[in-house]
Design a protein around this nucleic acid. Structure first.
Length: 800
DNA sequence: CAGTGAGCGAGCTTCCGCTTGACTT
């Protein structure tokens, strides 16, 4: 009774003092803003876009001036319901979605759904979530900018047209279920082209001269430092001659130069730079970085994590000044304003920074804490003084030839921002470390040579992309947005165009000649090259699709395509161009290309003839098959005994590079080792590595053995051990019902066909009857298998 | 979880950009 009265009273209150409604995109942001504004405001969120083009079909009326057919998606229906309810009792409604193209469009969709008039709706914007900024925004509402909305519609429609018209061409000409798009196809192209550069790269050798000199100080203490010949010798003979000449030479310091220098801190984080640094410093994948950042954001620890802006609010700048001055002293503070280099930036938010600058760390999961501390350091460092360094260069001459050796060192005179944070670099070019310091020497001082080496060095190809360096490249090209970098990386892996892999390196020998103790000697050393960790490799299908697209859809695959259409979108946003006209200019020729390609283009299979199989005399080819790249010997001919033999390529092999020998090796498997209980025991390599098999039982072959050489006895041992383990796995087996109770990784569970069921807590699996099991199954419904983020394993087409 | 690979052609697949949720062997 009391409760009902209470409710009625609350209802009455609500009616009596109707509040203003503010709609933002993110619920966490709604929470923050709620704190800034008084009782007369209710802040809620629409969770991003509320309407979109539905999945099945284009949903663009081409005949009717490209009219989009927007729909509220299933998962947004509840959001809309709630918004309508709140809107009904509201005094004024403020549309406070992000200040960019997409945000403007969301507000426009909101008008439509909530029955507001875009020409007098209250649209407010702000680029930082601070009390002052929000209050200013609320007192200066504007109306919906339809030009900006139309630019978004153009963007949306163009992406749908490109994606949904090109993908079906791939289904017909390459393989079903493939995809193409303005962003993903260019991302794959980058990786494919880099891979080909690396494969075609011919390392060039040269000889690097490095000398080590002794210096003895006043107290008789000896130390060494390193000097180098500025340029490498091109040939071994030249290097040899150089060392020979310098046997018994006298070395002397000819010049000492000291130059001041400085280093400047990097701008605070955007999404892209955060992903890069978290990858380099913490080893996080881009998706992990975003997941951790999302949690930090939701818990109020950091500002919004999907941003392309390096701007910091005045509130934050003040707090940073205070923090730096009190923690490090005022000589470490330097106010800086950063501006975006990136033209495609839309800057609807602040840079990524701690919400409360004074918190140098937070209470959270370990991985989140590490990311937070990185963000804190980068933010703080961005407002700190330059580091002052001194570069010392020493030239060393000799009495045998006119060559100069040079020693270089850097000393930090004032740490400045380096006290807190130093940005990491991507591995590229020379990885020689710099000397930190050279012992004090005087001009004209004679130096004692410890040893001098001429080391054979090879030029290196450009590095393969990591997830993070690919994001960096995409951002430079203006392709993709902060909210899509991580999903795009996921998409191209899920489509099996690209794999993130480790590769073992190969050994390479190099020559070293040494001058020491008055004579020159030579020896060989070994280095490991080409080892890769978490790098992006294109698959065969990725390469085939890229080649097909570059050949037939050159414009869309062009690295400047996005930049070019962005210029058009800008014209629409400025009211200088009608969006449907812009789309029409693009679509007419594009659609023509789609039609002619569908009609004329050859199917692609990447077929390559490797040679003739020595055993059968039949041709050996490799090509893309229904289930991936494969090798094939001979052809199946109707009416004859001749049958083709097939073998799947290994995950590390590629249609473009596999050799005849490697392909022949594939046909040696499966090997039949012998029989057990009248069934063959075979050894082979499958999707999950090497295995032995008897009937339906598969057992992985351990690392110390391989399927080419494993013996019958060893295979038998493996199979018997596995059979015994499996026997212990079954607790009950109800064969008639097709139901089993099994011991799994997570404890006992019920299995019926392909579905699994939990055993309720407190129930012992040992005495379960079939009736009890049927009850459990009836109540539960099968446990769902995760399809999202499942590591991209579902590459194969579903069977009906 | 580890077999497969003709050609015909049911009926399916696919984009980018905004947002977070849900439960599990």
């Amino acid at each position: 009774m009391f409760r009902i009265l209470n409710y009625l009273f609350a209802l009455h209150l609500k009616r009596a003092m109707a509040k203003n409604l503010i709609i933002v995109e993110s619920p966490a942001k709604a929470k923050t803003i709620n704190k800034f504004l008084g009782d007369e405001f209710v802040v809620t969120s629409c969770y991003g876009h509320i309407r979109d083009l539905p999945d099945g079909g284009l949903n663009i009326d081409i005949e009717n001036n490209y009219t989009p057919n927007y729909e509220v998606s299933e998962e947004k229906k509840d959001v809309i319901k709630e918004l309508k309810k709140l809107a009904k009792g509201a005094k004024d409604i403020y549309l406070a979605t992000d200040e960019d193209r997409e945000g403007e469009a969301i507000s426009w969709h909101l008008c439509d759904v909530l029955g507001l008039n875009p020409t007098n709706a209250k649209r407010i914007t702000y680029t930082e979530v601070t009390e002052q900024a929000i209050k200013d925004a609320v007192s200066h509402p504007r109306t919906i900018n339809m030009d900006l909305v139309n630019a978004q519609q153009a963007r949306r429609v163009l992406d749908r047209l490109v994606g949904y018209e090109i993908s079906p061409v791939l289904w017909r000409k390459v393989k079903p279920s493939l995809s193409a798009g303005r962003v993903q196809s260019v991302a794959v192209r980058l990786i494919v082209e880099r891979e080909r550069e690396i494969r075609g790269f011919k390392p060039v050798a040269s000889y690097k001269i490095q000398a080590y000199f002794f210096v003895t100080d006043k107290n008789g203490k000896k130390s060494t430092f390193k000097a180098e010949r500025p340029a490498n010798f091109k040939t071994e003979a030249e290097a040899q001659k150089f060392l020979d000449e310098l046997v018994n030479a006298e070395f002397k310091v000819s010049a000492i130069e000291k130059k001041p220098g400085k280093r400047t801190p990097a701008a605070p984080f955007t999404t892209s730079t955060l992903q890069q640094e978290a990858s380099r410093k913490l080893g996080y994948s881009v998706s992990k970085t975003m997941l951790m950042a999302q949690k930090l954001y939701e818990n109020g620890h950091i500002t919004y994590m999907r941003t392309d802006s390096v701007h910091l609010s005045d509130t934050a700048l003040d707090a940073m000044e205070k923090e730096i001055k009190s923690k490090y002293g005022k000589q470490f503070y330097q106010k800086r304003a950063f501006t975006n280099k990136n033209e495609s930036a839309q800057e609807a938010h602040e840079a990524i920074r701690p919400s409360l600058i004074e918190n140098s760390t937070v209470e959270a999961e370990n991985d989140e804490v590490r990311l937070y501390e990185l963000i804190w350091k980068r933010s703080i460092a961005s407002q700190m003084a330059d580091a002052e360094i001194e570069k010392t260069t020493i030239d060393i001459i000799n009495d045998k030839n006119k060559e100069t050796l040079r020693a270089q060192a850097e000393v930090i005179l004032f740490e400045g921002f380096l006290k807190v944070y130093n940005e990491s670099q991507d591995e590229e070019g020379d990885d020689e470390e710099k000397e930190s310091q050279i012992p004090p020497v005087k001009e004209g001082q004679v130096l004692e040579l410890k040893e001098m080496n001429a080391t054979e060095r090879f030029t290196k190809p450009l590095p393969r992309y990591t997830e993070a360096s690919l994001v960096k490249k995409l951002e430079e090209l203006g392709i993709g947005r902060p909210s899509t970098y991580a999903p795009t990386i996921g998409t191209i892996q899920k489509r099996n165009y690209v794999l993130k892999e480790n590769r073992e390196g190969t050994e390479r020998k190099y020559k070293v000649m040494t001058l020491a103790g008055g004579k020159v000697t030579a020896h060989e050393e070994k280095e490991n090259i080409g080892a890769e960790k978490n790098k992006l490799f294109p698959t065969d299908i990725g390469m085939l699709v890229t080649d097909f697209l570059v050949e037939n859809f050159k414009d869309v695959l062009d690295y400047n395509f996005t930049a070019d259409v962005e210029l058009q979108f800008d014209k629409v946003a400025d009211g200088k161009k009608v969006w449907t006209k812009m789309i029409d200019d693009f679509y007419k020729p594009f659609h023509q290309t789609v039609e002619t390609t569908t009609k004329d283009a050859q199917r692609v299979s990447g077929e390559r003839l490797l040679g003739t199989d020595p055993a059968s005399g039949e041709p050996l080819i490799v090509r893309m098959g229904k289930f991936g790249p494969m090798a094939q010997i001979g052809k199946t001919e109707e009416g004859s005994e001749k049958k083709a033999r097939y073998a799947k390529l290994r995950a590390t092999q590629s249609l473009e590079t596999i050799t005849m020998e490697e392909a022949l090796e594939l046909f040696k498997l499966p090997r039949t080792l012998g029989q057990l209980d009248g069934k063959d025991i075979k050894a082979s390599i499958g999707r999950f590595g090497p295995y032995v098999q008897q009937d339906k039982l598969f057992v992985s072959i351990p690392k110390d053995k391989d399927p080419y050489t494993i013996t019958f006895e060893d295979a038998l041992t493996l199979i018997r051990a596995k059979a015994e383990a499996d026997a212990n796995k079954v607790i009950h087996n109800f064969e008639n019902e097709g139901i089993q109770v099994l011991n799994g990784r997570y404890g006992p569970y019920i299995k019926k066909g392909k579905d699994n069921y939990k055993i309720p807590k407190g129930t012992s699996p040992d005495h379960l009857t079939i009736e009890e099991i049927m009850m459990i199954i009836g109540e539960q419904g099968p446990t769902k298998k995760s399809f999202r983020g499942g590591g991209g394993k579902k590459f194969y087409a579903k069977k009906k």
